[in-house]
């Protein structure tokens, strides 16, 4: 891993090397642009054939709750797009259990299949990444 670039190498030597990228989502959708920006970067990252995972922590869990209807706020409802991730071979979606519970939510309230992880398991997932990109 390159210390300088945080592991993002694009030169020929490392072509074909698969690294573990985690996109860490901690912001609710619509109030700020983070959630949508993250999703777009995730979709683009799929083109690079890396080991991509998404983590939803704190208010980030609100990004994937069912029943979002944005007509009234005149913003695009991008929640259905999370269900397209599977088609992009992005199937590792991790959700922080404490964050869900703190918001009165459970796995059934989410619109995609996820793995709900306790703090220790989520901590391990983060620690094993080559690159963690925060939104």
């Amino acid at each position: 891993m390159s210390d300088v670039t945080g592991g993002i190498d694009m030169d020929d030597e490392t072509e074909g090397v698969v690294k573990k990228f985690m996109f860490l989502n901690r912001k609710a959708p619509y109030g700020t642009i983070y959630a949508l920006e993250s999703l777009e970067v995730v979709l683009i990252s799929a083109a690079f054939d890396q080991d991509v995972s998404l983590a939803f922590v704190d208010d980030g869990v609100y990004q994937i709750v069912k029943g979002q209807h944005t007509k009234g706020i005149d913003q695009k409802n991008f929640s259905p797009t999370y269900r397209a991730l599977e088609g992009y071979d992005i199937e590792k979606l991790y959700v922080d259990k404490d964050s869900l519970e703190a918001r009165g939510l459970s796995e059934e309230d989410l619109l995609v299949d996820v793995q709900v992880l306790d703090s220790a398991a989520m901590a391990d997932k983060m620690a094993e990444q080559d690159v963690v990109i925060s939104f």
Partner: peptide, 15 residues
């Protein structure tokens, strides 16, 4: 209509 995005070519082909 289902996913609110236009798919990348690889995804389109597979779908």
């Amino acid at each position: 209509n289902e996913y609110q995005i236009a798919p990348a070519i690889r995804v389109l082909t597979k779908a």
